[in-house]
Amino acid sequence: MKYLLSITILLASLTISLPLLSQNKSNEDITYVRMEVKGMACAFCAYGMERKLKKIDGVENLKTDIKKGLIYFTTPSTKIPSRAILAKTIIDAGFTAGKIEFSMEPFDKEPKSE
């Protein structure tokens, strides 16, 4: 009986803790990226930029703030594109690359999702 009770408590603990562990792991796996794109001053310019970025493996949740010239996206930490690749993508889209930042936490004042 004592043995059965121990097994039950162990299973219950696992049931509760596994999703939490999984959630923590998921957060750790995401990297937030913020890029400054100079020259992106029109709606279709932004679309052209987004289209180029979407071709990079792992780029997800793209958000654009044209006024501030910023593009935000997330990527799995195992697929983080290098600064060089991102800068080249910006140049190939016809713009000028500014600061490119990576973070484990979301950036402040990101534009709202659609």
Binding site: A41, C42, A43, F44, C45, G48, I66, K67
Partner: peptide
């Protein structure tokens, strides 16, 4: 948040978006 489109009866020097693949 802002952004404009291309001019209507005048040429644009910007060859992106619609200018490029539209």
């Amino acid at each position: 948040m802002y952004g404009q489109g291309p001019p209507i009866t005048v040429e644009t020097p910007i060859m992106l978006g619609l200018g490029g693949s539209g």
